[in-house]
Amino acid sequence: MGGGRWSDLDRPPLNAAALRRALVREDGLWSSLEVVQRTGSTNADLVARAEAGGAEEGAVLVAEEQSAGRGRLDRRWTAPARSGLFFSVLLRPGDVPVARWGWLPLLTGVAVATGLSRAAGVDTALKWPNDLLVTVGGEERKAGGILAERAGDGGVVVGVGLNVTLREDELPVPQAGSLALAGAAGTDRDPLLRAVLRSLADWYGRWRDAGGDPVASGLQETYAAGCATLGRKVRAELPGDRSLVGEAVAVDGDGRLVLATADGVRAPVGAGDIVHLRPA
């Protein structure tokens, strides 16, 4: 068989009509759901749509394959067609103070991790701020990431990339992982996407009802409980080629990682790359 739609029977296409029936409801968050075969980046597409007035809150855009998916710090994210979940959602939390919007990628991480533990039976952890880690052969590997971008119309587009059925020989880097490699009980992407989006709607609703308060919504506590970075010695690689080493002791009310350094200083890190220097 050539490279047709059914050429990889382990990787059937998503069923867009069934996903819409399950998720798009009058009284729910998700207002539309579209699956495209291939695009550069679902985040870029949805930001453009939102700014052109062509998308309402709760729009979900899913790609079977992304050719220019981006991670944090503009890193490339590529994977074979239908091997993962690559999607973006449009949120408009206008009733939440903008100062609290920084919690949205962390909230999405919690939602994805809780949805996957239910639907895939795989234990996922969060590396601050929003990498999804799975355990493969006793070592932590990154199986997914989250990227939030502001849309000029007062919205936020949150993108999720998750490796589902990637095999060892398909990994972009040796430190990457996938749900299949982590021994997931289920790798059928339709129920996985349904579970993740239902979990995201649930967490987003709780957070908005609490006015974005990370304590009242339970978000800060749940994030900390699932964060593999806390309790570890880490190196934070900061903007401007600076770095800071310390023990990650807390996630503060603004979603920043607090490091206790050797000289007794508690330093909050709001942006940067975190390297885990030793196991928890």
Rank of each mutant, 00 (worst) to 15 (best):
M1F: 12
W6Q: 13
S7A: 15
D8T: 12
D10L: 13
L19P: 00
R20A: 12
A22L: 06
G28A: 15
L29I: 10
Q37K: 11
S41R: 06
V47T: 08
E56I: 09
V60Y: 12
E64W: 07
G69K: 10
R70S: 03
G71Q: 01
T78V: 13
A81H: 05
S83D: 08
G84Q: 00
L85W: 09
F86L: 15
F87L: 13
G94N: 00
D95V: 12
P97D: 05
V98Q: 12
A99V: 11
W101F: 06
P105A: 05
L106R: 14
L107P: 00
A113H: 06
A120S: 13
W128I: 03
G137I: 02
G137P: 01
E139R: 15
R141K: 13
R141G: 00
A143C: 15
G145I: 07
G161I: 00
V164C: 09
R167H: 10
E170N: 03
S178T: 07
L179N: 05
L181I: 02
A185G: 15
T187E: 14
L197D: 08
L200A: 13
A201G: 14
A201D: 11
R206G: 07
W207H: 01
G218M: 00
G218L: 02
A228G: 03
L230F: 05
A236R: 06
E237R: 15
E237Y: 10
L238R: 05
G240D: 15
D254T: 11
G255A: 09
R256N: 12
L259M: 01
A260V: 02
G264L: 07
R266I: 00
G270L: 03
